[in-house]
Design a protein around this nucleic acid. Structure first.
Lengths: 353, 353
DNA sequence: TTGTACGCGTTATCAC
DNA sequence: GTGATAACGCGTACAA
């Protein structure tokens, strides 16, 4: 009858280790945290006993005393349908986890359906002290979250550069290069009229890609158009229908802001009797796995999202640790040419000059 | 010089509220938690002061004293590439969050690349006391996680029924109905040889769908084949290539275990000169948004994944609260017929009988 | 209603 | 340099 161990054994605390080692709680803490001031032999003994007892730190207790949560937050604000088709977040999260897990940090994920509840979610994460910092994705024009997060006393890292003053380090992937490469690729193929099916215009990366697209077209002397969408396949399809409706004015190539819309665009074109890339070249963005497995396979712009997540996590952890950090830039996006883009069709003969 | 408020104001604690209200900490706690034994007027006054001071509970402190984390865990174990194309988790998470957020609970997400690190992740979540319970998705044959989770003292809910004894409630969606409906639909269209491109055979839902497929085919007297994959577009494409390689023996219809593989399958078929659905009918599974926007649009099996997430969250919260729960069953999967399935091609004349 | 111990690890203060 | 002691963080719970 081992009195103190009735039923399930109580998990060992630092006090148990201390008692067993015949030292004080404080010393055990010092030993376990690799801090100076502990005799080497004593430290070894303490560590051995901790291991033997199966002790492991209780984040709750540690959190309370250190005033840190050892967790980072990511708030997703997208329609369910859109986020479901978006390969970004799963990959980003995988990269984040690769860094957080060894660092003993956890990822707290919140998913909000509407803009309104987004600020509340950050406020709640902060007031409940759930997280030490947050990842700011999908930056918007004049993003109010920057001030909010700062006023909440949270650390943060932005994915990309905000268009307003920011107190937080930015980790960016230059996707402009990918846009330019796409336009150049199409221009080299003889296209003289290209459309861009962009994402939501309040999204900074969408508007920047749109602007880069226009600049690139102008540099090459190419007629261009931009259509805004909400990133959904549905709106990608609608935009495509509108663009190709008038055979006389339709572009010979369309670049989309994501692969899902590009796939929908291919479908609309084919349904309208256009061959891709014979009559219409199509380029995506994301280079999702499916891009290389559709027919025609999809030319798309690739970025290393996993690495982006990892870099963002490292930066945020460093910021929380108090390091002053410069913005960092990852490998730029690059174009992966496949079958959906090809030579521009010969000028139409059916339009009398 | 407001001495006690130099720089950033310290966040108010329950002690501040107590002092301001001229009562004890304990009474404030009772008032804030809506527990009986507090004079109505006093309670009102305490709540007013708490609001005025901007007090909000600190989960860390609450966690330490209640021995609860107020957080639930979800461990994703899939290749980055595969999870990126999978619409399940974003939708599932959206549903989970819909329940957790109002309940003051957080979702802790872990993402592990390999099987080996999966058990460690659960162990860590438990030993650090990060979460009170976990969602068990992607059940496997003889899933070792059930025993592990139980031994770790965590609560859990399984997504679907395990094939071994389980201490946890299951929340399931019957996808068998969807499989049967698919086979019946194809049989009604005259198909007499159907293949199933299944997911990983150790995944319970994959093997169960496979078995259901075979039973449904046998019931209708239809020749059938099952090919296992890892759920990736690549293997979906490979499986399709193998299936259609021999024109004499190829099936006239293929059902896939997810939409991504089905899209890859359509591409392989078209590339091989087969028309879909003219020569080959194709059905997917998941009914992702893109399914209705490709050409031909994809017949697929739909389930309400958001609702599944919400139900699983409710069940897990109830289990943590100590309720004894029965397994629950959500609305079954149903087939959404689109263009990628059609009448079986006429029997080949080029094969001399 | 109050007072106070408690949960568990961290850290500042002291003593040898 | 080694180590002990005690206070602290914040909310909960129980005896008084």
């Amino acid at each position: 009858m081992d009195e103190s161990h009735v039923g399930r054994t109580r998990r060992p605390t630092i006090a148990d280790v201390a008692q067993r080692a015949g030292v004080s709680k404080g010393l055990v803490s010092f030993a376990l945290n690799d801090r100076p001031g502990v005799n080497v032999a004593t430290r070894r003994r303490i560590l051995a006993i901790a291991a033997e007892l199966g002790w492991s730190p209780d984040v709750r207790a540690r959190s309370l005393s250190t005033n840190r949560s050892f967790a980072l937050g990511l708030v997703l604000q997208r329609d369910t349908e859109i986020v479901a088709g978006d390969p970004f977040f799963p990959a980003f999260i995988a990269g984040v986890e690769r860094e957080l897990s060894p660092a003993g940090q956890a990822l707290v994920l919140a998913s909000v359906p509407s803009h309104g509840r987004e600020a509340d979610t950050y406020r709640k994460l902060a007031s409940e002290r759930r997280v030490d910092g947050v990842f700011l994705a999908d930056l918007r024009a004049g993003d109010e979250r920057l001030d909010l997060i700062e006023s909440l006393g949270l650390a943060a890292v932005t994915l990309g550069h905000p268009d307003v003053a920011s107190a937080f380090p930015a980790v960016s992937v230059d996707d402009i290069d990918g846009v330019i490469a796409t336009v150049d690729h199409l221009a080299d193929l003889g296209h003289r009229s290209i459309a861009h099916v962009a994402g939501s215009p309040e999204m900074l990366h969408a508007s920047r890609r749109g602007a880069a697209f226009e600049r690139a077209c102008e540099r090459r002397g190419i007629a261009h158009r931009v259509v805004d969408t909400d990133f959904s396949a549905r709106q990608g399809a609608e935009a495509t229908r509108a663009l190709i409706a008038d055979a006389a004015t339709r572009p010979t190539a369309i670049c989309y802001s994501n692969d899902v819309m590009a796939l929908a665009g291919i479908a609309v074109a084919q349904r309208g009797g256009l061959s891709v890339p014979g009559d219409l070249s199509i380029a995506g963005f994301d280079d999702s796995e499916i891009a290389r497995h559709v027919y025609p396979s999809l030319t798309s712009v690739a970025t290393d999202v996993v690495e982006w997540g990892a870099a963002a996590a490292r930066t945020l952890l460093a910021a929380i640790a108090g390091d002053e950090l410069d913005d960092s830039e990852l490998a730029p996006a690059h174009l992966v040419v496949r079958e959906s883009t090809g030579a521009a069709p010969a000028p139409r003969r059916d339009t009398p000059s």
